[in-house]
């Protein structure tokens, strides 16, 4: 589904990603862990199409297409979803009109007719129940005045609405209490299917108690320096990142 080859990228002239290689297949859950400043969020930003990151070399193929040539909205329509680390508050834009516009744009791309008002509200209700999001949240402006936990739940709700092929969750667990964490993880597990894939970026192992990854990667200094099964996350939780750094510096 997603193939990243030797991806290098910089921000304001400073190299952040220094040669990323990654292959994600349909049905897989990949976790990316790593210390602060290692490039995790930059990788998410590059995949979603944020323009402050400058790609210096490498390629990213998504469903066989060169992702880096596409505008953010085109990527989203193809099935890329970014769960934001810091969801943006947009006063005056209601959740309903935001989601209705987004869902219908994506339906148009998939050659489906737009949903009318009542069908849309029904669809939204189903998804709200699925991810256990508070009904009141969708009556408000996008993220406006939401608590940290509500914002993250809202990301999962949007993911449920848009049914992406590849969801990139950028530290969705940060700032969540254990109940909210469980709701977020349950949402992901319910939406998981053999046809979609997840790239979960996290600092902590605890999210991975709920979302079981097939592969855990460690990103350090702009490179993936170690990839292994889910047990790697436990090992990192126990030993920290220093041993990885030492191993990496020896090479």
């Amino acid at each position: 589904m997603l193939t990243i080859k030797n991806l290098k990228a910089q921000i304001n002239g400073k190299p952040i990603l220094k040669g990323i290689n990654l292959e994600i297949k349909a049905g897989e859950v990949h976790a990316i862990m790593g210390p602060n400043g290692s490039g995790k969020s930059t990788l998410a930003a590059v995949l979603a199409g944020r323009d402050y990151v400058e790609i210096t070399s490498g390629e990213v193929l998504f469903m066989g297409q060169n992702l880096l040539d596409l505008a953010p909205e085109e990527r989203a329509r193809m099935g890329i979803f970014l769960g934001f680390q810091y969801p943006v508050e947009i006063p005056g834009v209601s959740m309903v009109s935001f989601m209705r516009t987004a869902v219908n744009e994506i339906r148009k791309y998939r050659n489906l007719p737009p949903l009318n008002s009542s069908d849309f509200l029904k669809y939204m209700r189903e998804k709200k129940e699925l991810v256990e999001i508070d009904t009141q949240l969708t009556h408000r402006s996008v993220n406006e005045g939401f608590s940290g936990g509500e914002k993250k739940k809202n990301e999962i709700f949007q993911m449920a609405m848009l049914e992406p092929k590849l969801a990139i969750l950028d530290e969705t667990d940060s700032g969540l209490d254990i109940d909210a964490l469980r709701i977020v993880a349950n949402g992901v597990n319910k939406l998981k299917s053999p046809d979609n894939a997840y790239l979960v970026i996290t600092h902590y192992q605890r999210l991975l108690d709920y979302i079981i990854p097939d592969v855990v990667h460690v990103l350090y200094d702009g490179r993936i320096v170690k990839s292994a099964g889910k047990e790697l996350a436990l090992e990192l939780e126990e030993k920290g990142y220093d041993w990885i750094k030492r191993e990496y510096q020896k090479i």
Binding site: F81, F84, P87, I90, F98, A102, I106, V142, L162
Partner: peptide, 15 residues
């Protein structure tokens, strides 16, 4: 940031 957030959900630049 708001523009990118909206576009990342499939909404065109114009919309």
């Amino acid at each position: 940031d708001a523009m990118f957030y909206l576009r990342s959900r499939g909404i065109s630049h114009k919309e």
